[in-house]
Simulated assay, not measured.
Amino acid sequence: MLSYCTNVHPAEDLDGILAQLDTYAVPVRERLGQDRLGVGLWLAAGVASGLAADPAARRRLAAELSARGLAVQTLNAFPYGGFHADVVKHSVYLPTWTDPRRLRYTLDCVTVLADLLPGDAAYGSISTLPLAWREPWTSSHDVRAGIAFEEVTRVLRSALARHEQPIRLAIEPEPGCVLDTVSDAVAWLAGRVDPEYIGLCLDTCHLAVSFADPAKTVADIRAAGLSVVKVQASAALHVEHPGAPEAVAALRAFAEPRYLHQVRELLPTGEVLAADDLPAALETLPARGPWRVHFHVPLHATPAAPLESTTGVLTGALGALAAQGPLPHVEVETYTWTVLPESGRQELAAGIADELRWARMEVHA
């Protein structure tokens, strides 16, 4: 079941979440002509904690979702809270996986998802951050994060003993983090976690930014004995000649203050250069090779030249996964609608519906 991620909506309390589902998710479902629409819920830590402590509130949420024709098989537990603050930037990586609050939040999400899963869901998935931003991080942090994942695994095993459907945690590599690339995540996870319960969230915007080959990436994950638990269907910005004046002008329109927009440059030698945000890239990268920018752009909307979208990476990754067997959960994640340049914005319900329509046609999910 194809879903869209509700981290595009800012509400951080249950009544607000339901109101935003009425305002956006229900109209999206109606525009698509579907009896049931998948939503990948983002629950900020406060609301997740309240739901986990209150079985009646979970039953209410499940009933409210069903009444609206909405189904939840996946949660996005990457942002802890404040995801629509005026400035988010590096704070989205806090608390880290060495902080007990991250573990508590994740376990709360396990409790909530177990009571929301529809009966026909093969499993539930929860995506989470790739440990932390890369600095500071030491071998002692590795140990503490590993202990936290052991506790998550213990809880996931016990949840399966109480419910018929397994729930799996999906680690989402992101540029600039401890697990910057999928290769980093595979190297860290393999042999350290139980692959029955912990795998990867393949965000195809992040994958594109790293200039990784999608088919080889999927093959390498499987060869390591790991699995893709969830795909976040997303696209990055690509610019072939970033030093051209028209390219610089086009990129400056995407240099907004709320989110971090990591940039990678592929040199003719094959070396990949990095900048932690778009304004820094415009000042420091040599612009001798193409750039990829971590800015989630709507899947169906081709950026104006000279910018391009990396939807080919998305379709390539999903094609490689489909060749291995049934697709994992696929969640369209474009949280950047409100920070797009004015020329790229669209009424939100219409835009989400158009993205899901594109995804349904292009990736057959």
Score class of each variant (00 low, 15 high):
Leu307Thr: 15
Val28Arg: 12
Gly289Phe: 10
Leu32Pro: 02
Glu30Tyr: 12
Arg104Glu: 11
Val229Asn: 06
Tyr335Gln: 11
Gly124Phe: 04
Ala212Arg: 13
Ile352Ala: 07
Leu237Trp: 15
Ser309Gln: 02
Arg144Val: 03
Ala255Glu: 12
Gly50Asn: 13
His294Leu: 10
Pro279Thr: 01
Val248Arg: 10
Pro341Asp: 01
Gly319Lys: 07
Arg222Leu: 03
Phe295Pro: 04
Ala350Val: 08
Leu251Arg: 15
Ser158Gln: 14
Gly270Cys: 03
Lys230Gln: 06
Ala281Trp: 12
Ala223His: 08
Asp203Ala: 02
Tyr259Asn: 06
Ala145Thr: 12
Ala255Phe: 15
Leu282Cys: 02
Leu189Trp: 15
Cys5Phe: 08
Leu200Ala: 13
Val8Pro: 01
Arg68Ile: 00
Ala281Glu: 14
Ser3Asn: 15
Arg134Asp: 04
Glu271Thr: 10
Trp337Lys: 07
Asn7Phe: 00
Tyr80Lys: 04
Gln262Lys: 14
Leu75Lys: 09
Pro95Trp: 12
Ala161Met: 07
Glu265Cys: 06
Ala350Met: 09
Leu117Asp: 09
Ile17Ser: 08
His206Asn: 05
Gly191Lys: 11
Glu12Ile: 03
Phe78Glu: 03
Val363Phe: 10
Thr74Asp: 14
Leu307Val: 14
Ala208Phe: 11
Asp354Phe: 00
Pro328Trp: 05
Pro130Gly: 01
Leu189Met: 05
Val193Asp: 11
Thr153Met: 06
Asp22Gly: 02
Ala350Leu: 05
Arg264Cys: 00
His241Lys: 15
